[in-house]
Structures are given as C-alpha cells and as structure tokens.
Nucleic acid binder design. Structure first.
Length: 321
DNA sequence: TAACCGTGGAA
DNA sequence: TTTCCAAGGTT
C-alpha cells in the first residue's frame, strides 16, 4: 500500500527533472495536465452538462471497446429518441438493437435497456449516485460506475480505463504498456495520484483519459506534444519496449463464432420481419457453426424464434419483448 | 482466470 | 493482407 506521502515522493522525483523553477511536486504534475486538458479537451456532446447523468451513462456503455468517432452519431440519435431511462425501458429490444446499429457487442444494447428499466422503476428515473447501486446495473462494471460517478455526478472516483492505465504505466511505472490484466497496484497508484477535491478529481480523470486518447496513444505516442513529458518515467528510461509483449493474445476473428453471430444479427437487423432458416443461410453457411451461433443469439436474447399459428417455427427475428 | 462477446479503421 | 486496438463486462 502506497501512502500519500510516498506518492508525493514519486511525483516529486519525476517533476525534479522538469527543470522548471519551483517544480517538484504532485501539485505541478496536476497543474500541467489540467491546464493541457483545459486547452485541448475535445468538445464531445456527452461532456455538455445538458447531457445529464443519463446521457453520460449511455455514452459510457457505447464507448466500451468502441471508438469515439463511431459512437458520437449513434449517441446523438439515441438521446433524441430516448431522452430518459423510462423512454428506453419502454422500447422493444428490436428497436434498441436496430438503433445500436453496428457499434458492436450488441448485448450492451440489451443491458442498457435493462439498466434503464431498473433506473426507472427503482431509482425514480434518476441515474443512481451510490457506487453499489451503479454496479448493480446490468452492463455496468467497475470502470463505468467510476466514470459515471466522476463525469456525471462530479464526485471523486478512481477511473481506470485502458487510456488511464497506459498513461500511468508510462508516466509513473516507466513501462510501455500496462499488464494484460488490471493489478491492485495500478488501482493504488491511481488512487494516490487522484486529487482530493471532487471537481478536481473529476477533471483529473478526464484529463488522463484524454491524454491517453490524443497524445499518449498505444502505438505511436506524440511525446513532443505531451504536457508531462519531462516527468515521464517511461521516457526517462529511454522508452523501452513492452515488457509484456507476447503475453497478449489477439482474438481471432475470421471464421469464428463471433463473426457468424455478427453476420446473422446484421441480417436480422436489416430485415423488416422474420427470416426463415433458408433466408438466414444467405448470411452464413448452414452447419454446426451456424447452429451454434444461432443458439447463442437465442440464449442471449438477441434473437427470438417466431412461432406460427400452428405452433411451428416461422423463422427468426429481433425480439419484440 | 481466461475465454467470450462485434465492428471497422489504421498501420 | 494481417495485425492491432478502441472510455469493458460477464461468466
């Protein structure tokens, strides 16, 4: 467990190389990054206070593993159509899945709709502020709960996404990239660096994320443009290569069940009504993998079997309930 | 813990 | 063309 005093030492050691008169404190590190953020933050719609906590929650779910550029138009449409949790909760899964379009991981869309129902029924239509209540929402994990706490409620929380993990791994840890799985030491380090005040800590979280997204990127960081380059442990160490290289498995895609599921669901999104198995066969060749993918989609509630008047199957469609 | 869950742009 | 990666969560 790193104490705040030890943290200040760490930050001071980094700042000592800054060469600026009066530098050498965590305070300077915070100022440098917060100033940079004030001048360079993107004008994203969910950062507008008018977006509200619901708008922030929607954005956070959509942004899970999905680039900002792809999310923005879908978020705008979504908020116009379902401006409150109750609105979304009243929508059909089919409508929600079509509005989700091709953001990917469509189970997120169903969970967001379920979360909207919980918020509408159990929280009087307001996004909860208690961490336990946030974590109880479908599709909300440690990152999203912290992000909503910080960015919507403007309260102190440790926000650790892929950007923050990478920035801190470099800035403090001297590593090219964070370890494959989140370690307790990373959370402790992030907590130690978090400013005490609610609003300051919220800005700090956003600034770290923005730095990771715009400057301290995974592949080709723009170190000359970095406001904290002079205190970066990774840079001072000579920007060594990723020590975890080789332990990161890249997920296969071509020919996988996931690709099959994606094709089948894309066909059903585009269809006005149920599709027969023969029609679905245009999206993916029939066989064991087709069967497995369809069964998985049914089990996940992403697809429903349509039953005819005689009880026989008429085909498959996006769920209406 | 590790595997699973979509999609598409950039290098 | 292949690989990497993007504001993770669930099981």
């Amino acid at each position: 467990m790193t104490t705040p005093v030890e943290l200040r030492d760490v930050a001071a050691q980094g700042a000592a190389g800054a060469g600026r008169a009066g530098s050498g404190s965590a305070h300077d590190l915070h100022l440098a990054l917060l100033d940079w953020f004030a001048a360079n933050a993107r004008d994203l719609p969910w950062r507008d206070p008018a977006a509200g906590a619901w708008g922030v929650l929607v954005s956070e779910i959509m942004l899970q593993q999905t680039p900002v550029a792809r999310v923005e138009p879908r978020w705008r449409d979504w908020m116009l159509r379902w401006p409150t949790p109750a609105d979304l909760a009243a929508a059909t899964p089919a409508d929600v899945l079509r509005a989700w379009d091709r953001l990917g991981y469509p189970r997120r869309a169903l969970r967001l709709r379920e979360a909207a129902g919980v918020i509408a029924r159990e929280h009087a239509g307001r996004v909860p502020t208690a961490m336990a209540a946030l974590l109880a929402l479908p599709g909300v994990g440690s990152y999203t709960a912290a992000a909503v706490t910080a960015f919507a409620h403007r309260r102190r929380a440790v926000v650790l996404d892929t950007n923050v993990r990478r920035v801190l791994a470099r800035l403090i840890g001297g590593q090219a990239l964070p370890p494959p799985s989140l370690l307790a030491a990373e959370s402790e380090r992030a907590l130690d660096l978090l400013p005490d005040g609610d609003e300051d800590s919220a800005r700090w979280n956003a600034a770290l994320m923005e730095l990771g997204a715009l400057v301290c990127t995974a592949r080709a960081p723009s170190c000359p443009a970095c406001p904290v380059r002079s205190v970066c442990a990774w840079r001072r160490a000579g920007a060594p290569a990723d020590s975890h290289a080789g332990k990161r498995r890249t997920q296969a895609w071509h020919g996988t069940d996931r690709q099959a599921r994606g094709r089948l669901l894309a066909a059903l999104r585009a269809a006005p009504g149920p599709l027969t198995p023969a029609e679905l066969a245009a999206a993916w060749e029939p066989g064991p993998q087709f069967d497995r993918a369809l069964a998985g989609l049914l089990a996940d509630g992403l697809v429903a079997a349509e039953t005819g008047p005689e009880g026989g199957s008429e085909g498959y469609a996006l769920p209406l309930t």
